[in-house]
């Protein structure tokens, strides 16, 4: 059994998480994520459980909101914390239209 994840596997995870990692971190994650996986693997030994999903310990079903408009933000408020803006818009580097 392999003792570490491949570089590609780690890079894929870093890409999913959109976190740039250094070469050093990459090597660290190759081992660390594998260790973790080995530990997590143990839950597969459990087979005597009832198979109900507990998404969250809710005590209730969802209650609905009536379809009635409530107060919204002034565009000025929207832009208050925005690092880059242009007019009323929030700005980002161009997104190549996929």
């Amino acid at each position: 059994m392999k003792d570490r994840l491949t570089r590609e596997e780690v890079l894929h995870v870093a890409d999913l998480a959109r976190i740039e990692i250094t070469e050093e971190e990459l090597e660290e994650y190759q081992l660390k994520l594998k260790d973790l996986l080995d530990q997590v693997e143990k839950i597969n030994e459990i087979n005597d459980h009832d198979s109900n999903n507990l998404i969250a310990p809710w005590q209730n079903n969802a209650e609905y909101r009536q379809d009635i408009e409530e107060e919204m933000l002034d565009p000025k408020e929207v832009l208050k914390n925005v690092p880059a803006k242009s007019g009323n818009y929030i700005e980002v580097p161009v997104v190549i239209n996929e």
Binding site: V40, H49, D50, S51, N53, L54
Partner: peptide
């Protein structure tokens, strides 16, 4: 990173859903 890894690809069905089930128990 750990969370993204444990939800990626087949891991979500192998581990995440199983964890939800055991949690219920």
């Amino acid at each position: 990173m750990i969370g993204s890894y444990l939800l990626s690809g087949k891991n979500a069905t192998t581990y995440y859903n199983k964890a939800l089930e055991i949690r219920d128990d």
